[in-house]
Amino acid sequence: MDEEQLEEEDTQRDKYLTFTLEGEQYGIDIAVVMEIIGILPITKVPEVPDYVRGIINLRGKIIPVVDMRLRFRREFRAYTDRTCIIVIDIDGLLIGLIIDGVSEVLSIPEDRVVPPPALRAAQNRYIRGIGRLADDKVVLLLDWQRLFSEQDEAQLTAASGADAAPEQQETATED
């Protein structure tokens, strides 16, 4: 079993599911992606930040959904049938990311990833690195761990953790 897992980890290494958000391309570790679904009816939950759109019922599981446009302070765009929800699994915590649409799965070896510039702008801390592609395009690699495990936005401390590797997934089986 261990071997199988290792193998699976190996095939998933350095692979990123990419999606575009107003021109920029973002990537998320394929290892945490559970599935990609179309938009589902969303139940609103009171008193949450506006980027948390509510909860959805995914085959009996109740999953919170976050609008990535709003999360990154872009303009809200009404959902269409092209809108997707990427369901990710962070140590058993399921979260749906609402995005305009997924692009493709890219392989970006670790040596093509550079750390993000240490800017003061708050947003960068959710980027763990920038992957350079062959055609000079870049992919912003999301630090999903920080994105969803932080208490709230005010928390700007703790600079380390950028090298949190994707091997978190073996614990991600229970819910």
Partner: peptide, 27 residues
């Protein structure tokens, strides 16, 4: 309630959710 949501809200008086027969969620 998913823990991610629970973390963000504390004062709503909502303690759980349930699925209705048609698949929609009730708080």
């Amino acid at each position: 309630v998913p823990s991610y949501i629970k973390k963000l809200t504390t004062t709503t008086g909502i303690t759980g959710c349930t699925l209705l027969g048609d698949g929609s969620i009730s708080l």
